[in-house]
Design a protein around this nucleic acid. Structure first.
Ligand code: NAD
Ligand code: NAD
Lengths: 264, 264
DNA sequence: CCATCTTTGTGCACGCGTTCACAAAGACAT
DNA sequence: ATGTCTTTGTGAACGCGTGCACAAAGATGG
C-alpha cells in the first residue's frame, strides 16, 4: 500500500473502521459503473467481485453505514451510490490546491478523475517565477508567495504536494499554517504535521520496491526449493559488519537464511 | 494507503510479514540519507523518528531480517543499507516497462526516483502511432504491437500501467501473457490476474476521497457535538430507497446517524 | 575486572480486520 | 396464506499487527 495515515493512528472515526473507509471509494466506483449501465440492484456477491473484495467483508462494511439492502434481492444501486457519497463527504465540493507544477503536478492538474468526484482544482501553485501565469491544463499557475491568500480566500482544506522532496516539509508547514488540514504527499519524505492534520502519501518508489521483493522471492523459490544460503550472484558487499560476530550465536535469519558473516 | 495486494492475500513471504516489507523501503530511504551524511551508526529511536514509525516496531521489523544491531550502540548504517537492499532485491537490476505514455506515463518516465534504486526504464510503450519513435525523457516510445517482443527480449518482469482505465485489463492480460509477474497499476480499475502475479495499485482519487471523509468528520464534530441527524445542506437526493422501510426497524447508522428514510 | 549505562531483541497482551457460517428477513411463486 | 428460495446482516473465531515493558547484551569508564 502506498499510503497510511501519519499521525492519529487508531482513530475509529465515527464508528466506521479505517479499513472500511478505504474501501468505500472502491465500492463507489463499481456502483457508479453499474449505475451508468442502468443496473437497478446488485447483490453483495456481484458487487464484491466487481470491487475485488470478499463478499462478507463488503456486507460488513455496508453494515457500518446502516441497513440498506434487501434480503433476497440485494442493494439498490442508486441509493447506495448516494449513501456512500454522502458518507465520504462527496456531496459537497472540495477545493484542492496543487503545489509544485512540474512533471507530476502538471499531470495531476490535467487529471479528469479529480473533477468527477466532487474535487475541484482551485489553484496551481509553483515557486518558479517563470511558471507564474502560464496556464497548465487550462488553469493559470500562481506564485507560491500568494499561497496563504489563495488558501484562505478559497477556503481550501485539501492540499496536494508535488514539489521536490527537499522542500516538501516547508511547503507542508506553510499549507498547514494557512489552514489546510488534509495533505496528499507525492514527495518521498516523511511529513510531520500537528494533530488534527491528516497526511496520506503516494510513493511510486516504495511500491516498486515492494514488488521487487516479491519478484525476487518468486524467482528464488522457483530456482530449487532449498539450495542453501544465497545460492549465487552476490552483488558486491559494502563495508564490514559493525562488530562482526565476535563469539555468540544469537540467531540468524528467520529460517536458515544467509549467515551473518559478510561476504568478502 | 493507496495500494494493497490483489490476489494471494495472507502470504507471509519467507517469514517476513507483509507490513514489515512495506516499511523496509521507508527505512532504506532514511538510512540512505544518513549514509550520505556519513553517519556511521544510528539507534532504533533515531531511525524510527526519521522514518515516522514507532521504535519498537522498527526493532521488531529488523529482527525478522536477523540480528544486526549492537546493544548499547545501535545499527551500522552502511551494513543495514546493504541488508535491506538485498532483502528487497535491489542489489540486482529490474527492467521496467511503462505502458501508456500520456500525461502520467510521461511524468513517470522522467522520474528520477526510478533509476536511483535499481529500477531501469527498459521501454516506454504506447498504442498511439503518432507517439511511436518520439523520445520521452530521452527514451523513444515504442508501439504496443511490439509489447511481447520487448518484454521477452529484455526479460522484463515488472510492468507499469498508465493507460486509460478502459483498456487497462487488456493491457494487463497482454503483459501477463508476455511474462510480466508484477504490475503497478495507475488506472482506476480492479485488475484480475492469475495466481503468482502481484498487482499493486496507486489511485489518486481514492486517496482524496479518504481525505475528504476525515475532512468532513473534522468539520462535523467541530460544529457542535450532536446536533441530531444531518444538520444542514442536503445536496439533493437521487431516487427513492429500494423497498423503503416497510415496517421493521432493524437498525440505523451505527450511532444515531441519519435515519434510513430518504429526504424527499 | 567490575560497575554502570545505553540500547537491542522479544515475550506478551490487546485490538483491529478478516472470514466463515448461519439464522432471519423478505421476495416470489403457488 | 403458505412454502420455498435467495440474500442479507452479524456472531464468533482466528490471525495479524502494534506497542509496552523488560531482561539480556554489550559498550564504556574506572
Ligand atoms: N514524476 C513522477 O512520476 C513522480 C513519481 C513519484 C513521486 N514523484 C515526486 O513528486 C515530486 C515532483 O516530481 P516532478 O517529477 O514533478 O518534479 P519536477 O522537478 O518536475 O517538479 C517540481 C516542481 O516543484 C516546483 N517547486 C520547487 N520548490 C517549490 C516550492 N518551494 N514551492 C512550490 N513549488 C516548488 C518546481 O518549480 C517544479 O516546477 C518529487 O518529489 C518527486 O520525487 C514524482
Ligand atoms: N494524470 C494523472 O494525474 C492521473 C492520476 C491518477 C490516475 N491516473 C490514471 O492514469 C491513467 C493515465 O492517465 P493520463 O492522464 O496519463 O491519461 P492520458 O490520456 O494522457 O494517457 C493515456 C495514454 O495511454 C495510451 N493508450 C491508450 N490505449 C492504450 C493501449 N491499449 N496500449 C498502450 N497505450 C495506450 C494513449 O495513447 C495515451 O498516450 C488513466 O487511467 C488515469 O485515470 C492519472
Amino acid at each position: 500500500m502506498a499510503t497510511g495515515r501519519t499521525h492519529r493512528p487508531a482513530t475509529r472515526s465515527r464508528g466506521i473502521p479505517e479499513a472500511t473507509v478505504a474501501r468505500l471509494p472502491l465500492y463507489l466506483r463499481a456502483l457508479t459503473a453499474l449505475s451508468e449501465r442502468s443496473v437497478p440492484t446488485v447483490s453483495s456477491e456481484e458487487l464484491a467481485a466487481a470491487a475485488g473484495v470478499n463478499s462478507a467483508k463488503l456486507r460488513k462494511d455496508f453494515s457500518y453505514l446502516g441497513s440498506y439492502g434487501t434480503r433476497g434481492v440485494g442493494y439498490d444501486v442508486e441509493y447506495l451510490v448516494y449513501q456512500i457519497s454522502r458518507e465520504l463527504g462527496l456531496t459537497q465540493d472540495w477545493p484542492v490546491v496543487i503545489v509544485g507544477i512540474g512533471n507530476l503536478g502538471a499531470a495531476l492538474a490535467g487529471y479528469g478523475g479529480f473533477a468527477s468526484r466532487g474535487f475541484r482544482v482551485a489553484a496551481l501553485i509553483d515557486a518558479d517565477p517563470a511558471m507564474t501565469g502560464k496556464p497548465v491544463a487550462g488553469i493559470p499557475v500562481q506564485h507560491s508567495d500568494d499561497l496563504e491568500k489563495i488558501i484562505s480566500e478559497d477556503g481550501v482544506s485539501i492540499g496536494v504536494i508535488a514539489t521536490p522532496a527537499g522542500v516538501a516539509q516547508q511547503v507542508c508547514d506553510r499549507l498547514v499554517a494557512a489552514g489546510v488540514t488534509s495533505i496528499l504527499n507525492f514527495a518521498p519524505t516523511v511529513l510531520s504535521v500537528p494533530d488534527g492534520v491528516d497526511v496520506r502519501k503516494v510513493d511510486l518508489s516504495i511500491e516498486l520496491q515492494i514488488l521487487a521483493f516479491h519478484e525476487q522471492r518468486k524467482a528464488g523459490e522457483e530456482a530449487g526449493a532449498e539450495s542453501g544460503p544465497e545460492a549465487g550472484t552476490e552483488t558486491g558487499a559494502p563495508t564490514a559488519p559493525p562488530a562482526a560476530r565476535t563469539g555468540g550465536s544469537s540467531r540468524k535469519g528467520p529460517d536458515g537464511d544467509v549467515p551473518a558473516v559478510m561476504p568478502a
